[in-house]
Amino acid sequence: MRRTLPVILTLVAGTLAILNSYIIFAPLNNWVPNYLQRTVTISTAWAVGIGSLNLMRIHSARISRKTTNWSFSVILIVAFTFFLVLGFVLEKHQENPFYSMLWNYVQPPLSSTMYSILAFYMASAAFRAFRMHSVDSTLMLLSAFIVMLGAVPIGEMIWPGFPVLQEWLLNYINTSSQRAITIGLTLGAMAQSMRVMVGLERGHLSGGE
C-alpha cells in the first residue's frame, strides 16, 4: 500500500494534468490550476520546511561529533537561525532597512566575488590543461578562439572575420546541435514521465521494487 497508493496518485494527477492541456472541459480546466497546481505550491512549502529541518539535523550532528570542518556547520546554523528569526520577528521584513542591508549588500557581493574568481581559474586552466590532444579537442580549441575573439570589439579589431565566423558557428553548428539535444531531452523526459506515471520507475518511493 505504501507504494501502490503513491503510484495511483501519480497516475491520476499526471493524467489529469496532461488532459488539461489537450481537452477543453471547464470543470477540468478549472480544477487543475485551482486545486492540483496549488497542491504543488503547498507541497513545495512543506518540502522546504522539511529540507531545512534536515539541514539542521545533519549539521548539528557534525558539530556534536566534531567531524572535519565542523566549524563551517556552526556558521551555517548561526546564519540560518539568525535570518529565520529576523524573518519571523520583523514585521514586513522586506521593508526593514537592517534586513534589506543584510539581504542585498552581504550575500550578493559574496556571490559575485565567487563567480568572478572563475576568470582567474579559467585563465590558469587554459594555460595548463587545455591541450590539442586529438581532433575533437583541436576543434573545441579553435571554436573557443573564434567565439572568444568574435564576441568582443578587440577581436574584430585584430581581424574583422572573427565576428562573422563566431556568428556562423553560433547560428549553424550550435543551433543544429542544440535543437537535437533539446528534442532528445524532451523525448527522454516524456518517456521518463510515462514510466513514473505507470509505476515502472519507483526510485522516488524509497527505491527498490
Binding site: A123, L141, V152, I154, G155
Partner: peptide
C-alpha cells in the same frame, strides 16, 4: 572583457 578574452587566447597558444 576583451583584454581578458585576448589573454586567455594568448595563454592557450603559449601553453600548447
Amino acid at each position: 572583457q576583451g583584454l581578458g578574452h585576448l589573454l586567455i587566447v594568448v595563454l592557450l597558444i603559449v601553453g600548447n
